[in-house]
Amino acid sequence: MTQLALVIDLNVCVGCHACVTSCKQWNTSGPAGYMSDDNPYDKDPTGTFFNRVQTFEVGNYPNTETVHFPKSCLHCEDPPCVPVCPTGASYKRESDGIVLVDYDKCIGCKYCSWACPYGMREIDEHQKVMKKCTLCVDRIYDTSLPEAERKPACVMACPTNARLFGDVHDPESEVSLAIRERGGYPLMPEWGTKPANHYLPRRKTRITIHEDELTRADNPLKKERKQAPHTIEGPTLDDSTMW
């Protein structure tokens, strides 16, 4: 079983929205038809997007941290949006685990969007069908593209390489390694949807320096000269360590 998915590294995402615009560009030009917009250059612009980047502030001032959070369909392994669809337009592919909507069968009842706890589905207000991230299914299998480009548009566009793409069921894939070794986690695990997309947490690199690591009590380079009196009381690192 293959389960294609994205792994998004929140530690390096800078919130540039390149994945949003490249997603919109690729998918609005695709064979499935445009993604409609209303008032794009006017008051209250609105439109259909498969991907959004949101921003959260974590912590209490002044110890706050800005987290940019790209948000697209998680291609759940147990997608709650699929069984509720009355027509079968919403389906999960067995071959690669991508959750898709058949735009020719969708009746636009919006029930699947109610059944997605993440709010990842958006109705196209003009085509009147439900739309969602396809993981660029029209791109990743396109043999006319160079192999290195057979990736979702958002992955290609990310300047900081925050988006990894691959098979999360293959334990040796880049995405599985990232999830395993860098603490990848799913969103809202409480609903048992088993999202295939994972997020990599923010990481802190800290070093701990003690005072006696900064001050040499007896400097061997100046051993012949007169030693400055010790300012540190008690045993120091120099008493126990070979430098």
């Binding site: 209250d44 502030e57 974590v58």
Partner: peptide, 14 residues
């Protein structure tokens, strides 16, 4: 304490 600062767009959406 997590506060949303942006939902990714300035106006409405579905």
């Amino acid at each position: 304490n997590i506060v949303q600062k942006s939902q990714g767009f300035m106006a409405g959406s579905f």
